[in-house]
Protein backbone atom coordinates (compact mmCIF):
# COMPACT_ATOMS: atom_id res chain seq x y z
CA UNK A 1 0.00 0.00 0.00
CA UNK A 2 2.68 2.45 1.06
CA UNK A 3 4.51 1.59 -2.14
CA UNK A 4 1.59 2.69 -4.35
CA UNK A 5 1.13 5.92 -2.41
CA UNK A 6 4.85 6.64 -2.76
CA UNK A 7 4.91 5.98 -6.50
CA UNK A 8 1.81 8.14 -7.01
CA UNK A 9 3.41 10.96 -5.00
CA UNK A 10 6.66 10.72 -6.94
CA UNK A 11 4.67 11.19 -10.17
CA UNK A 12 2.41 13.87 -8.64
CA UNK A 13 5.26 16.15 -7.51
CA UNK A 14 6.84 16.89 -10.91
CA UNK A 15 3.48 16.82 -12.78
CA UNK A 16 2.50 20.54 -12.81
CA UNK A 17 6.08 21.52 -13.68
CA UNK A 18 6.09 19.21 -16.68
CA UNK A 19 2.70 20.55 -17.75
CA UNK A 20 3.89 24.18 -17.57
CA UNK A 21 6.98 23.42 -19.63
CA UNK A 22 4.94 21.54 -22.25
CA UNK A 23 2.29 24.25 -22.46
CA UNK A 24 4.93 26.90 -23.15
CA UNK A 25 5.39 25.45 -26.65
CA UNK A 26 1.86 26.33 -27.73
CA UNK A 27 1.22 28.41 -30.83
CA UNK A 28 -2.20 29.58 -29.64
CA UNK A 29 -2.68 33.08 -28.23
CA UNK A 30 -4.24 31.81 -25.02
CA UNK A 31 -3.14 29.14 -22.62
CA UNK A 32 -4.72 25.74 -22.94
CA UNK A 33 -3.70 22.17 -22.48
CA UNK A 34 -3.28 20.00 -24.55
CA UNK A 35 -1.58 22.66 -26.67
CA UNK A 36 -2.81 23.72 -30.10
CA UNK A 37 0.18 23.54 -32.43
CA UNK A 38 3.85 23.70 -31.55
CA UNK A 39 5.91 26.88 -31.72
CA UNK A 40 8.69 28.73 -29.95
CA UNK A 41 7.12 32.14 -30.43
CA UNK A 42 6.51 32.72 -26.71
CA UNK A 43 10.18 32.16 -26.00
CA UNK A 44 11.04 34.62 -28.77
CA UNK A 45 8.66 37.11 -27.20
CA UNK A 46 10.20 36.61 -23.73
CA UNK A 47 13.78 36.97 -24.97
CA UNK A 48 12.83 39.90 -27.17
CA UNK A 49 11.23 41.84 -24.33
CA UNK A 50 13.50 44.38 -22.64
CA UNK A 51 11.12 44.51 -19.64
CA UNK A 52 11.26 40.78 -18.94
CA UNK A 53 15.04 40.66 -19.39
CA UNK A 54 15.51 43.60 -17.02
CA UNK A 55 13.42 41.82 -14.38
CA UNK A 56 15.44 38.64 -14.94
CA UNK A 57 18.63 40.64 -14.43
CA UNK A 58 17.32 42.18 -11.20
CA UNK A 59 16.38 38.76 -9.83
CA UNK A 60 19.76 37.25 -10.69
CA UNK A 61 21.73 40.14 -9.17
CA UNK A 62 19.55 40.18 -6.06
CA UNK A 63 20.00 36.44 -5.52
CA UNK A 64 23.74 36.69 -6.17
CA UNK A 65 24.35 39.50 -3.65
CA UNK A 66 21.95 37.97 -1.12
CA UNK A 67 23.64 34.56 -1.39
CA UNK A 68 27.13 36.01 -0.86
CA UNK A 69 26.14 38.21 2.08
CA UNK A 70 24.15 35.57 3.93
CA UNK A 71 26.78 32.89 3.29
CA UNK A 72 29.53 35.18 4.60
CA UNK A 73 27.43 36.18 7.64
CA UNK A 74 26.57 32.53 8.31
CA UNK A 75 30.19 31.46 7.97
CA UNK A 76 31.31 34.08 10.51
CA UNK A 77 28.56 33.05 12.94
CA UNK A 78 29.34 29.35 12.47
CA UNK A 79 33.02 30.07 13.14
CA UNK A 80 32.13 31.73 16.46
CA UNK A 81 29.83 28.86 17.42
CA UNK A 82 32.07 25.94 16.37
CA UNK A 83 35.65 27.17 16.63
CA UNK A 84 35.31 29.52 19.59
CA UNK A 85 32.73 27.29 21.28
CA UNK A 86 30.95 30.47 22.35
CA UNK A 87 28.51 30.41 25.21
CA UNK A 88 24.84 30.21 24.24
CA UNK A 89 25.92 28.96 20.81
CA UNK A 90 22.89 26.69 20.50
CA UNK A 91 20.58 29.56 21.49
CA UNK A 92 22.18 31.76 18.84
CA UNK A 93 21.67 29.05 16.22
CA UNK A 94 17.98 28.92 17.17
CA UNK A 95 17.74 32.69 16.67
CA UNK A 96 19.30 32.41 13.20
CA UNK A 97 16.64 29.85 12.27
CA UNK A 98 13.67 31.97 13.47
CA UNK A 99 12.77 33.33 10.01
CA UNK A 100 11.76 29.73 9.25
CA UNK A 101 9.08 29.56 11.96
CA UNK A 102 7.28 32.73 10.91
CA UNK A 103 4.43 32.49 8.39
CA UNK A 104 5.43 34.19 5.14
CA UNK A 105 2.46 36.56 5.00
CA UNK A 106 3.45 37.87 8.43
CA UNK A 107 7.10 38.25 7.40
CA UNK A 108 5.86 40.25 4.41
CA UNK A 109 4.13 42.80 6.64
CA UNK A 110 7.06 42.82 9.12
CA UNK A 111 9.36 43.70 6.24
CA UNK A 112 7.07 46.46 4.94
CA UNK A 113 7.24 48.04 8.38
CA UNK A 114 11.03 47.55 8.59
CA UNK A 115 11.83 48.90 5.15
CA UNK A 116 9.50 51.87 5.40
CA UNK A 117 11.22 52.70 8.72
CA UNK A 118 14.58 52.64 6.93
CA UNK A 119 13.23 54.43 3.85
CA UNK A 120 14.06 51.44 1.65
CA UNK A 121 10.59 50.27 0.63
CA UNK A 122 10.43 49.60 -3.12
CA UNK A 123 14.22 49.77 -3.51
CA UNK A 124 16.80 47.21 -4.55
CA UNK A 125 18.76 47.77 -1.31
CA UNK A 126 15.64 46.91 0.68
CA UNK A 127 15.15 43.68 -1.25
CA UNK A 128 18.80 42.70 -0.68
CA UNK A 129 18.43 43.22 3.08
CA UNK A 130 15.23 41.17 3.25
CA UNK A 131 16.60 38.36 1.08
CA UNK A 132 19.69 38.14 3.32
CA UNK A 133 17.45 37.67 6.37
CA UNK A 134 15.27 35.10 4.59
CA UNK A 135 18.20 33.02 3.33
CA UNK A 136 20.29 32.97 6.53
CA UNK A 137 18.62 29.75 7.82
CA UNK A 138 19.36 28.03 4.51
CA UNK A 139 22.94 29.33 4.30
CA UNK A 140 23.82 28.54 7.91
CA UNK A 141 23.13 24.80 7.96
CA UNK A 142 25.53 23.58 5.23
CA UNK A 143 28.36 25.83 6.38
CA UNK A 144 28.10 24.90 10.06
CA UNK A 145 27.94 21.21 9.15
CA UNK A 146 31.10 21.54 7.06
CA UNK A 147 32.89 23.42 9.84
CA UNK A 148 31.97 20.73 12.39
CA UNK A 149 33.44 18.06 10.13
CA UNK A 150 36.68 19.95 9.39
CA UNK A 151 39.58 19.05 11.66
CA UNK A 152 41.03 22.03 13.61
CA UNK A 153 44.26 20.04 14.05
CA UNK A 154 45.14 20.93 10.44
CA UNK A 155 45.12 24.61 11.34
CA UNK A 156 47.21 23.95 14.44
CA UNK A 157 49.68 22.02 12.30
CA UNK A 158 49.91 24.91 9.81
CA UNK A 159 50.39 27.41 12.63
CA UNK A 160 53.07 25.30 14.30
CA UNK A 161 54.91 25.18 10.98
CA UNK A 162 55.03 28.97 11.07
CA UNK A 163 52.05 29.91 8.90
CA UNK A 164 50.54 33.28 9.78
CA UNK A 165 46.86 33.32 10.86
CA UNK A 166 45.55 34.87 7.63
CA UNK A 167 47.53 32.52 5.47
CA UNK A 168 46.32 29.55 7.52
CA UNK A 169 42.77 30.77 7.06
CA UNK A 170 43.02 31.17 3.27
CA UNK A 171 45.09 28.09 2.55
CA UNK A 172 43.94 25.59 5.18
CA UNK A 173 40.63 26.51 6.84
CA UNK A 174 38.77 27.79 3.81
CA UNK A 175 39.56 24.90 1.43
CA UNK A 176 38.46 22.44 4.13
CA UNK A 177 34.94 23.89 4.17
CA UNK A 178 34.70 24.75 0.47
CA UNK A 179 31.90 22.24 -0.37
CA UNK A 180 29.87 23.60 2.55
CA UNK A 181 30.35 27.18 1.38
CA UNK A 182 29.43 26.35 -2.21
CA UNK A 183 26.31 24.53 -0.98
CA UNK A 184 25.31 27.54 1.15
CA UNK A 185 25.79 29.86 -1.80
CA UNK A 186 23.77 27.73 -4.21
CA UNK A 187 21.03 26.91 -1.71
CA UNK A 188 20.49 30.52 -0.67
CA UNK A 189 20.73 31.62 -4.30
CA UNK A 190 17.85 29.30 -5.25
CA UNK A 191 15.73 30.32 -2.26
CA UNK A 192 16.27 34.00 -3.01
CA UNK A 193 15.78 33.67 -6.76
CA UNK A 194 12.45 31.85 -6.32
CA UNK A 195 11.12 33.86 -3.35
CA UNK A 196 7.79 35.51 -4.01
CA UNK A 197 5.45 35.65 -0.99
CA UNK A 198 7.51 38.16 1.00
CA UNK A 199 9.06 39.96 -1.97
CA UNK A 200 5.74 40.89 -3.58
CA UNK A 201 4.99 43.21 -0.66
CA UNK A 202 8.26 45.07 -1.16
CA UNK A 203 8.61 45.63 -4.90
CA UNK A 204 7.69 48.96 -6.46
CA UNK A 205 7.64 50.85 -9.72
CA UNK A 206 11.45 50.90 -9.81
CA UNK A 207 12.27 47.36 -8.79
CA UNK A 208 10.65 44.04 -9.68
CA UNK A 209 11.69 40.39 -9.49
CA UNK A 210 10.97 37.64 -11.98
CA UNK A 211 8.72 35.37 -9.82
CA UNK A 212 6.69 38.38 -8.60
CA UNK A 213 6.26 39.57 -12.19
CA UNK A 214 5.12 36.06 -13.20
CA UNK A 215 2.66 36.03 -10.31
CA UNK A 216 1.06 39.35 -11.20
CA UNK A 217 0.87 38.35 -14.87
CA UNK A 218 -0.88 35.09 -13.96
CA UNK A 219 -3.44 37.06 -11.92
CA UNK A 220 -4.11 39.46 -14.78
CA UNK A 221 -3.75 37.58 -18.04
CA UNK A 222 -3.58 34.11 -19.51
CA UNK A 223 -0.86 34.82 -22.06
CA UNK A 224 1.34 31.79 -22.79
CA UNK A 225 4.40 34.01 -22.35
CA UNK A 226 4.04 33.26 -18.62
CA UNK A 227 4.55 29.59 -19.42
CA UNK A 228 7.70 30.40 -21.38
CA UNK A 229 9.11 32.53 -18.54
CA UNK A 230 8.16 29.81 -16.04
CA UNK A 231 9.93 27.23 -18.18
CA UNK A 232 13.03 29.43 -18.08
CA UNK A 233 12.77 29.53 -14.27
CA UNK A 234 12.48 25.73 -14.22
CA UNK A 235 15.53 25.39 -16.46
CA UNK A 236 17.48 27.69 -14.17
CA UNK A 237 16.46 25.72 -11.07
CA UNK A 238 17.42 22.43 -12.76
CA UNK A 239 20.85 23.85 -13.48
CA UNK A 240 21.29 24.80 -9.81
CA UNK A 241 20.11 21.38 -8.63
CA UNK A 242 22.51 19.74 -11.08
CA UNK A 243 25.46 21.74 -9.72
CA UNK A 244 24.39 21.06 -6.10
CA UNK A 245 24.20 17.35 -6.86
CA UNK A 246 27.72 17.45 -8.34
CA UNK A 247 29.17 19.45 -5.40
CA UNK A 248 27.63 17.71 -2.38
CA UNK A 249 25.23 15.09 -3.71
CA UNK A 250 21.45 15.29 -3.60
CA UNK A 251 21.28 13.32 -0.33
CA UNK A 252 22.60 16.46 1.41
CA UNK A 253 18.99 17.65 1.71
CA UNK A 254 17.91 14.69 3.81
CA UNK A 255 20.97 14.43 6.03
CA UNK A 256 20.80 15.39 9.67
CA UNK A 257 23.80 16.84 11.43
Amino acid sequence: MSRYIALAVLLFLPLPIVIVVLSSFTSAGYLSFPIKGVSLKWYAEFLGSADWLKVLGTSALLALIGAFVSTAASFAAAWAVVRHKMRFGTAYETILLTPLIFPHAAIGVIMIVTLSGLGWLGTFTGLVLVHCILTIPYAYRPVVAALRKADPALEEAAASLGSRPWRTFWQVSLPAVRPGLVTSLLFSFIISFDEVTVTMFLVGPFVMTLPVQVFSEVLESASPIIAAVSAALVLFTSLMVFILDKVVGIQFFVERD
Partner: peptide, 8 residues
Protein backbone atom coordinates in the same frame (compact mmCIF):
# COMPACT_ATOMS: atom_id res chain seq x y z
CA UNK B 1 9.25 28.48 -7.44
CA UNK B 2 5.79 28.12 -5.86
CA UNK B 3 4.48 30.53 -8.48
CA UNK B 4 5.42 28.12 -11.26
CA UNK B 5 4.00 25.11 -9.43
CA UNK B 6 0.71 26.82 -8.56
CA UNK B 7 0.47 28.08 -12.11
CA UNK B 8 0.93 24.48 -13.27
Amino acid sequence: SIVVRSYG
